[in-house]
Nucleic acid binder design. Sequence first.
RNA 1: UGACCUAUGGUGUAAUUGGUAACACAGCAGUUUUUGGUUCUGCCAUUCUAGGUUCAAGUCCUAGUAGGUCAACCA
Length: 557
Amino acid sequence: MDNIDNSKESLNFIEQIITDDLSSGKHNGAVLTRFPPEPNGFLHIGHAKAICVNFELAKKFGGSCNLRFDDTNPTTEDPKYVEAIKADIKWLGYDWNEEVKFTSEYFDQLYLFAEDLINKELAYVDPSTAEEIAEQKGKPNIPGSGNVYRDRSPEENLSLFREMRDGKHPDGAMVLRAKIDLTSPNMLLRDPLMYRIKHAHHYRTGDKWCIYPMYDFAHGQSDSIENITHSLCSLEFIHHRPVYNWFIDKLGIYPSGQTEFSRMNVEYMITSKRKMLRLIEQGVVSGWDDPRMPTLRALSRKGYPAAAIRTFCDKVGMTKRENLIEFDLLESCVRDVLNETANRALVVEDPVKLIITNYDGDGEMLPANNNDGDETAGVREIPFGKELWIERKDFMEDAPKKFYRLSPGRDVRLKHAYIVHCTGFKNNEAGELEEVYCNYYENSKSGHDVSGVKPKGTLHFVPVNGGVPCEVRNLSHLFTDPAPDSHEGKDFLDFVDPDSMHANAAIMEPSLVGAEVGKQFQFLRKGYYCVDPDSTPDKMVFNKTAGLKGAWKPKGK
RNA sequence: UGACCUAUGGUGUAAUUGGUAACACAGCAGUUUUUGGUUCUGCCAUUCUAGGUUCAAGUCCUAGUAGGUCAACCA
């Protein structure tokens, strides 16, 4: 009916590559991507980008995505991470093609590949020490120098390599190297290591091997073995691509192709494994799932919906440029989801007592929409009473005209309840506000308001009779600087904000009792909150997920 | 004394492949609203610099400049 052409949706550079490959018939129309984590840590927001990219691209082009654990270093890897990573990927909303893959499943094949290259005189055993090898490689601007072991015969190399495999040599005694080009301007092409000796127990292959392939000799071939069509990785692997291609070419195996894109950096977040570990070790955070951490489990605990992280990764886009994404974009995605899905609730955090002098209906129950913007969210009942808790900052003795809250002589609506007129207040000896007094308009009940009074503001409240104590954890950025690890000569820990988590006692409406862990709510006028696993039957604990946008602030604050 | 990658508003991405800078977030102003939320509207860049080709350049050429990356028996 309309002729608007929406088909010109622009493709990012990788989609363009895939589209081109598809039309040239490069992989017979197949699209198979993969997400290849090393099981040595928990997934974080940066991984989320890689996961979304690989799974979404596969989905978009009718292909699928493998999950492969890149487990070639038995001394740093652990099966507990395999399970954690699988769980986090599922939480994010993705499911992998067929069963989970492991690079360690290909150790036999990889070994055969190595012998093949030895036989082709393209690999040799080198007994040089790590230092000697580093020296041979030269410097980026100085070509590497000759190596006497390069010219060993295939027979000799084969027998030495087998001795390595058979455990005849200690760790570090020798390595297998690819014979490529010691003078290449690309350091990685200066005869890269293929295998090293590691007498270590592997969590999957046990003690079968005492030699393990290096990343460069495992990754490309693993892609190839799985018939991965598009191997996507971050920019720092760009110099590895020639190595990747060299092995595939010399081995004559399935031509998987690598494309690099820039990793996503987010303000106030640090994703280096070592640095995250330091935060934990120094006790800055309580663990990998501390809601201030950038790990997926932490973000989930903080209340971030998986869908929000997905749209975030999508909105961030896809290029080869360095980037630092504003934290606001992430929060905006979170609010977008939560605004629609989170039920509203009334919680008062810094209470002061409001007494409705002319009200006598204590115990009255009032219907309250769970989400004014969504009728299907249903209705709950909230208690009302003569004495209520309201937020301390919702009253001001000498208020500016723009203050749409309580002040002597002003009217305000109590959400879901009545309009009240402020008649006075009382301070304690210290001069602090202790009680606020009001009269209510009997005919102003929500839904039946015939009072004709039109107050500017609406307040939330919890009745003294019926309110339930709880804990609210207000979280802010872990760092005082958006890029704490970008300052020369300064440690990122120097930017830790010691005050990034505030646990406050609060009072909540009774309907929140027993809310399930992980459930998100919007505390009206306050923000989005999520039930923390630390909650007990006696005391609910909530993490602040995100505040609402642009709250009015009195001058000077 | 090298090689590679990148350069568009505050941020992140677009621009039908040479046709007159678009979207989102943030910000500001206004609208709607029984959440100072939501909604909706408006405003906010001549594309790193300097030359050049062209009727026309963010897109092409040349020379610069800036940022990033590359040597671990890590991935």
